[in-house]
Nucleic acid binder design. Structure first.
Length: 275
DNA sequence: CTTGTACCCTGACCGC
DNA sequence: TGCGGTCAGGGTACAA
């Protein structure tokens, strides 16, 4: 589900609310959303009573840092979502409540996940550090230059779209924003990643940043499931230029947008003006 | 090492 | 109205 802009929107909504709070009790309704080790029962036991240091994001992960040497890594995957309040804000929307975290201010952090592909993992700082080390650069941070992107794409024969989705190469991009960035930079998603010229890499680099920043400004994209913490939809879906527009005229050249399958996921692009 | 495929799960939608 | 097939913002395990 959510890609960098959506996950970052959630982080911004929750960070100030959660930091400094203590988690008094935890209820896990769907055990399979807790990834072992340590397993659901131990997870409840070890997270209950802990105080939250900060609430961060890396790639598409949310990180609930606990005081002491541990953190809860949250993956929303496709349908995971949060709400914060004294009661379930919208029972009609939260039909697959998977976990609840009661806070020391009387409010509860609710986690709902229709498909249960997302989940929680309690990690030591050392375990997280080894996971973190394998993730690619954050595209919105200073260090993400065109040269860094060029290095991530170099010598790769896989299609550039697939490489952009590989979190070890660039962190945070998913199916929507990879397609949008390739459209904005007029690059054919089927091109071998390593075949891009320096000028093309620069175009792609600028497009990735501009697309993500624009999406962040519009609180992300709500295609079907994603909601911000207060339940509101993103607004970027109205600004999508290729994703989900199969058969519609290209906004640049009016030729029909086509959909192909790459690495098992659909890619929308304009064969007439993306080269 | 790189690359592709299957799979986890539910629900919405489409054609018959 | 029902049924089967397909698809969905992701990531991981495993095979080649």
């Amino acid at each position: 589900m959510p890609e960098l802009p959506e996950v970052e929107t959630i982080r911004r909504d929750l960070a100030a609310e959660l930091s400094g709070r203590a988690i008094e009790t935890v209820r896990v309704h769907q055990p399979d959303i807790v990834l072992p080790p340590p397993g659901p029962a131990a997870f409840v036991d070890r997270v209950s009573g802990r105080r939250i240091g900060s609430f961060d994001r890396r790639a598409k992960y949310l990180l609930l840092r606990l005081l002491g040497d541990e953190l809860v890594q949250v993956q929303l995957r496709m349908t995971g979502r949060f709400a914060l309040g004294t009661s379930l804000p919208d029972p009609e929307e939260f039909t697959h409540l998977a976990a609840e975290f009661d806070l020391d201010d009387g409010r509860t952090l609710f986690y709902d996940d229709t498909r249960r592909l997302g989940g929680f993992r309690l990690l030591s700082s050392a375990d997280w550090a080894s996971i973190e080390a394998k993730l690619g650069p954050e595209p919105l941070e200073e260090g993400f230059t065109a040269a860094v992107l060029a290095a991530a794409l170099a010598d790769r024969r896989a299609p550039v779209k697939n490489v952009l989705l590989d979190q070890r190469r660039v962190a945070g991009l998913g199916n929507i924003y990879a397609a949008e960035a390739l459209f904005a930079s007029r690059l054919d998603p089927r091109r071998a990643a390593g075949s891009l010229s320096a000028e093309e890499v620069e175009r792609l680099h600028d497009a990735i940043r501009a697309t993500l920043l624009d999406a962040l400004e519009h609180a992300g994209t709500t295609f079907s499931d994603y909601r911000a913490v207060n339940g509101s939809s993103g607004r970027f879906q109205d600004r999508l230029k290729v994703y989900g527009r199969e058969g519609s005229p290209c906004l640049r050249c009016a030729e029909p947008i086509v959909r192909i399958v790459q690495a098992g996921r659909s890619t929308c692009f304009c064969p007439s003006c993306q080269h």
